[in-house]
């Protein structure tokens, strides 16, 4: 499983690209269409896909992903049904999958049971928005025992001491939050990103994927020159919201994702 993520980075890097890492909220617009959307992203050139598990109180998310969470919850998405969706995706695809969740659904599911079920379903890594290093260790131990990575977050406010502490848990990559704030689209990215990414890479000792606020090909390209991977979330989720349960959904998303994937070329 760790292999799948590592191979994805190596493949991208051989082609002179940063890894393209799109995010979508599982279950939006429906659980049935999530596998088809993931397939569309894969065709468009996604290297890794992040699947958001919807939660009732998404404190780290801006309005776009909050509303997607509400739609997904209304469509019956829960941690359990999202794992079923992962199983379904795995029938046809080997694309690396990262589950993006808040802590409480996992806590309620049971850490050990979650790790076993996630590994069996084919989850490669788990990122928990509200579990910093201090609180993530028990989950990290449980996930490690079944070969699933934990993806730690690093923020612009993280001190050097905190970034170093991440090193003990870091698997295939760390997720660097490009700005202080919640998820969402931004016109201008914060400056000094290159320096920050280099520092994080050195202190955390692993690859750095950058997310939060990256929404168009120009921004993807700017970040791709600096980081090992680029996440686009809210911009895709906003397109999914516009299209909803229409027949054009997968095709339109594939087209938009293709323009983003093309921008990951570093030249």
């Amino acid at each position: 499983m760790r292999r799948r993520i590592r191979d994805a980075f190596v493949r991208a890097s051989r082609k002179g690209r940063a890894a393209f890492v799109p995010f979508l909220t599982a279950g939006d617009p429906s659980l049935e269409r999530t596998p088809a959307l993931v397939a569309a992203l894969e065709r468009a050139g996604a290297d890794i896909v992040e699947l958001g598990v919807p939660f009732s109180d998404p404190i780290a998310d801006g309005p776009v992903i909050q509303r997607a969470s509400e739609r997904a919850l209304a469509a019956g998405a829960t941690l359990g049904t999202v794992l079923q969706v992962v199983r379904e995706i795995r029938f046809r695809s080997e694309i690396p999958l990262v589950l993006f969740s808040y802590f409480n659904p996992i806590h309620r599911y049971g850490l050990a049971r979650f790790a076993v079920d996630a590994a069996a379903a084919g989850v490669d890594a788990v990122l928990v928005t509200d579990a910093p290093v201090e609180e993530a260790r028990p989950l990290w131990e449980t996930l490690s025992s079944v070969g699933v990575d934990l993806i730690p977050l690093v923020a612009p406010t993280s001190t050097r001491r905190r970034i170093k502490a991440v090193k003990a848990l870091a698997g295939a990559f760390v997720y660097f939050v490009a700005r202080t704030g919640v998820t969402g689209m931004r016109e201008v990215l914060e400056g000094g990103l290159g320096e920050q990414v280099r520092l994080v890479r050195r202190l955390a000792g692993t690859r750095v994927v950058v997310g939060f606020g990256i929404s168009n090909p120009e921004q993807v390209h700017a970040v791709a020159r600096l980081a090992d991977g680029v996440v686009v979330g809210s911009a895709l989720v906003a397109r999914i919201a516009e299209l909803g349960n229409t027949p054009e959904l997968e095709g339109e998303i594939e087209g938009f994702a293709r323009s983003l994937a093309a921008a990951t070329v570093r030249r």
């Binding site: 780290a60 690093v154 923020a155 612009p156 406010t157 939050v177």
Partner: peptide
């Protein structure tokens, strides 16, 4: 149990 941004 908070986002990393708030830890420091």
């Amino acid at each position: 149990f908070v986002p990393e941004t708030l830890m420091a």
